[in-house]
C-alpha cells in the first residue's frame, strides 16, 4: 500500500509566527515538524483541540502562509523546500488545491451574488470563453452542490448556514481541484445539516475523486468521513492511523482521552464507560514544554519524556505513534483490562 503514489506529501513542515514579547520577538510554534501524506481520492482527518495548529497546517499547505521550514510535494512537484530553497509560484496550483472554510457566514463576500462568488475562481483562472459558458458552468456547479438555479442572483445573506456552506463548496469545486482542505466545514452547522454536508462531501469524492484533508475537532464526524486520521497536539502529530485502527486500537494517551470524550448516544453504556479527564491546561505554544509537548498532562509521563521529543514510530503497518513509552502504556492498558 505504501508503494502507491501520494498526491500530497508533507515533510517536517514548520510554521512559526513571530510574536512580540516586550522588545524581543519570540516564535510561536503553531506547527512544529509535521509530516504526513495523502493519496489521490483519500480523506485524511486531522483532529485536535482548539489552538493545536490544525487550521494552520491547512492554510500553510495552500501557502496562504509562508512556511518556516519543511517540504511540500504535490502531484510529484515540489512546491516548497526550505533546504533546496524551492518556492514555486502558487498561481498554477490554486487550480488544483482548494479550501472550504469553517465559518459559512464570513467566508462569503456579503456584496456579491452567488453567481459572482462561484464565478470568481472561473474569472481568475479564465476558465471560460464566453459569458454563456460562464453561466452554464456556474449553474451546473450549483446543481452539483444541491442549490437551486433560481438562487444565482441572490446574495449570501439570504441563505441559511447549510446553503452558504454549499456555496463555499461550489466555489472550491469551480476550478476542478484534486485536493481540498476542509477547514472544519461543518462545525458551524446544526447536527442535521452537518450530516447533509458531510454526505455531500463523500458523494463528491466518489464522483470526482477529490482528496480531502478534513480538519475538525469533532471525532465522530472525522471518523465517519476519513480513511485515515491524524491526531494533533500543540503543533505536533501524535498519532496517525487508519480510521478503524485508531478507533479500536488507540495507543497514544492523548488519543485515548480524545476518544473517551466522544459522547455515547446510549446512556446505559455511557454510564459504564470511564472518561479520561486530562489534568491541567494546554501549555502556551510560546512556552512549549521541553521534550514531548504532552508530558505535562500525560498520566504516563516519565523523566525521559522531558528530554527528547519522541519521533513518529510505526507500530503496525500504517499506524504511527509519537511516544517513548508505547510498550509500557499498552502493558498498563492490558493490565487494566485484565483487572
Amino acid at each position: 500500500m505504501s508503494e502507491e503514489k501520494y498526491l500530497l506529501e508533507v515533510e517536517h513542515l514548520k510554521q512559526y509566527f513571530p510574536v512580540k514579547e516586550g522588545f524581543s520577538k519570540v516564535p510561536l510554534k503553531a506547527v512544529d515538524d509535521v509530516s504526513f501524506a495523502i493519496k489521490p481520492g483519500e480523506t485524511l482527518g486531522l483532529v485536535g483541540e482548539s489552538g493545536c495548529g490544525k487550521t494552520t497546517v491547512g492554510r500553510t499547505l495552500l501557502r496562504l502562509y509562508q512556511p518556516t521550514a519543511g517540504r511540500i510535494t504535490f502531484d510529484g512537484e515540489v512546491l516548497f523546500d526550505s533546504e533546496k530553497k524551492i518556492d514555486v509560484d502558487m498561481q498554477l496550483y490554486r487550480k488544483k488545491m482548494q479550501m472550504v472554510f469553517q465559518d459559512p457566514y464570513s467566508s462569503l463576500d456579503p456584496r456579491m451574488t452567488v453567481e459572482d462568488i462561484i464565478g470568481e475562481p472561473l474569472d481568475v483562472h479564465k476558465l471560460y470563453s464566453s459569458k454563456a459558458e460562464r453561466r452554464d458552468k456556474i449553474l451546473s456547479l450549483m446543481e452539483t452542490v444541491g442549490l437551486n438555479a433560481e438562487h444565482a442572483m441572490r446574495y449570501a445573506h439570504e441563505f441559511s448556514g447549510g446553503q452558504r456552506q454549499r456555496i463555499g463548496i461550489a466555489r472550491a469545486l469551480a476550478v476542478n481541484p484534486k485536493f481540498i482542505v476542509c477547514d472544519e466545514p461543518v462545525s458551524a452547522l446544526d447536527v442535521s445539516i452537518q450530516a447533509q454536508v458531510v454526505n455531500m462531501f463523500e458523494e463528491l469524492q466518489e464522483k470526482l475523486g477529490i482528496a480531502y484533508l478534513f480538519i475538525a475537532h469533532d471525532l465522530l464526524v472525522v471518523r465517519h468521513i476519513s480513511d485515515r486520521i491524524a491526531v494533533m497536539y500543540l503543533g505536533h502529530i501524535m498519532e496517525i492511523a487508519d480510521s478503524d485502527e485508531l478507533n479500536e486500537n488507540p495507543i497514544h494517551p492523548y488519543t485515548h482521552s480524545l476518544l473517551s470524550a466522544v459522547p455515547i448516544p446510549d446512556p446505559n453504556i455511557a454510564r459504564q464507560s470511564k472518561r479520561i479527564i486530562l489534568e491541567g491546561d494546554v501549555p502556551s505554544p510560546l512556552k512549549m514544554p521541553s521534550g514531548c509537548p504532552f508530558r505535562t498532562r500525560c498520566p504516563y509521563a516519565q523523566e525521559d519524556c522531558a528530554k527528547v521529543m519522541p519521533a513518529l514510530k510505526e507500530v503496525s503497518p500504517g499506524h504511527s505513534v509519537a511516544c517513548h513509552h508505547i510498550e509500557d502504556i499498552s502493558r498498563i492498558k492490558k493490565g487494566v483490562l485484565l483487572n
Partner: peptide, 10 residues
C-alpha cells in the same frame, strides 16, 4: 475569511 478565500482562489 472571504478575503482568505479570494487569496486561496488566486
Amino acid at each position: 475569511e472571504y478575503v482568505l478565500a479570494a487569496k486561496c482562489i488566486g
